[in-house]
Nucleic acid binder design. Structure first.
Lengths: 115, 115, 115, 115
DNA sequence: GTGGTCTAGACCACC
DNA sequence: GTGGTCTAGACCACA
């Protein structure tokens, strides 16, 4: 997996996992790869994966069965959607719009940039 | 000057300087404050300012006259705008659009969220 | 390590590292010492080593794996050679030839001066 | 006048003056421009020119008549030639040859690079 | 006066 | 453990 320069790797992995859950690749209630497995798949230290899992556990998107592994929470998809929607609309969108104004790009210009 | 938590101070100062150049407060071809001056104005160590200036020099937004000081490059405004536009269109916008798709938000929904 | 008077230490270390890479002492793809390690080996402040590493990263001769360390870029040897050859042929050689002309020394005189 | 990055400006001007003397543009025994004049011609602080003149005075290539100006020493051309020849053969040439060896360039390759 | 280099040491996020 | 940022302060060559 390729990582962006300035965002912590564990958060980038977190985003990646959310996408997998949303897409149904990792269904609710099912076990996800162990810290070691995913670490070796992504070429990343298991500690980093653990941090990701802790982060997602804190948002009740996954949960841990001791000695067994991590599982996707029931309702995870809904949760992810509402959380990310909130963040997007309240935090990110205002910044985006401000920047677009600075750059002289309007909403009606956007379709031009969609590939 | 107030600094944001998680972005390096020297980059925040860099952004700030770009804004000053764009606004015309620091015109092209003119000398900008010395590292010591600006450091004491912003309450920041001169080394940190120097780092900012090195960063901006690397982007040919300012240049150095040895023993004299730093000056705004001719064409700096155009350069800043085109750089920021590039980053926005090529790096940020695709991620934004991807996320919007994931969240089920379309371009035509956006005007709703503008205050 | 002994340092020359008038060239910055961080650049001298940079040259030294390039030699190590060229000689194969530090092979491509392999990890090089941490800033603290190399600093204590060379008797130099870690910040100075970091500066060297940043400089070499900028020339894509080494790269950083976050939280792990710096590594020699694949193709670093070739890159170093071609960079140095470029500088020599395009920047230094013209000056040398100009000076030789001024001094009345011709190319065919040179073998006389080789010990 | 354009200045090289890493060599002090006052030395670059010194080289430039030596060339003028060798070429006969500034003949022996004749007055050369005042510190202020040359400074404004080259776009450089007069202090820098003064430093150049002091440097050349120290090598008895020019001399000062108090209240009148600086003059080219009689015998300056010969002096410059022998000094520069010495430096070139003893100091610079060995370094050049060493670097050429490192880069795999031989003396017989050189004519190729002459424009 | 200017920037440039270097040190010592601290603190931090991240792996 | 890793690098990255920042400070304080020193020293220097140069303009």
């Amino acid at each position: 997996m390729e990582f962006n320069e300035h965002k912590p790797i564990y958060l980038q992995i977190s985003d990646n996992i959310c996408e997998r859950i949303l897409s149904g690749e990792w269904p609710e209630e099912e076990r996800i790869p162990s810290v070691r497995e995913l670490g070796s798949i992504l070429g990343v230290n298991p500690n980093t994966i653990l941090r990701t899992y802790e982060h997602l556990t804190g948002s009740t998107i996954i949960y841990n069965k001791r000695g067994v592994g991590f599982f996707v929470e029931p309702g995870a998809k809904k949760k992810i959607l509402s959380m990310q929607r909130d963040i997007f609309v309240n935090d990110e969108l205002p910044l985006i719009l401000k920047k677009m104004e600075m750059l002289g790009i309007t909403l009606s210009d956007l379709p031009k940039y969609v590939k």
